[in-house]
Amino acid sequence: MNENMNKPNDDDIVFAASGLTKTFGRSEKAIRAVDDVSFAMRRGEIITVVGESGSGKSTLARMILRLLPITSGTMALNGTDVTRLRGRGLQEYWRQVQAVFQDPFSAFNQFFSVRRLLHRSGKLLRHADVDLDSRMRAALEQVGMHPAEVLDKYPHELSGGQRQRIMIARALMMEPKLLIADEATSMLDASLRATILNVLFDLRADADLSVLFITHDIGQACYLSDRVLVMQHGKLVENGPTEDVIFNPKHDYTQRLLADVPRLHDVG
């Protein structure tokens, strides 16, 4: 693997994973869903993890979010080890690392209004002397929504696109350093998808945010990211700048994957 990509002594490195491994089950039947994955993310960088279903990309996302226990390996946020954080420390971690998920319907508690959803997340900010209400409004405006119109709405009163934008606002409210977007646009229509991707794209410049974008769609990876990581059977098989990985892939698997992607135009 690309050893040179993983030097955590770079000042700009926000997040570094080293040898991350997750096994499900015990002994002989154990499945290595994520197998020795190492990479580093710089400030303001958008990295896409691509892979087919079962490649372990979503498991990786849930490990980074600390929603799944890590079997082995370490991760560091701004140079601090966060692999085994608990309690208050974990809450502080979640203030800096947030997520948007795939399904804009099941991500909402249907009994909560938008205001209550955001307020609940806002509890992570209770030690950080901020005006929650203005944070909430600012975050909604950042994703192009009018706070007065949506704050008292319930999820069933919002469209899929609106819901997904509110989910992004919820994450942004914490002013995180790292945003994990796990197939965050997969269930949206093409026309809306572009809008959401642009929101992520602009945040990188405006808010110094790093984004780990997880998708099976190489087209989206190509549009959005600075760097692309390719996963196969839990392993990272290719890691490099988008232009290199997508237009000049080195690994067999990446080449095959790209050859199968349907195109709109014949490539010259």
């Binding site: 572009a194 991707l197 087209g219 190509c222 549009y223 988008t242 232009e243 992607v261 135009h265």
Partner: peptide, 19 residues
């Protein structure tokens, strides 16, 4: 609709797709 399709082709990295 066609303009908002994202395919891994060089031209989509060069411009902003507005949906």
């Amino acid at each position: 609709l066609l303009a908002s399709v994202l395919v891994p082709e060089p031209q989509i990295r060069r411009r902003r797709i507005t949906g």
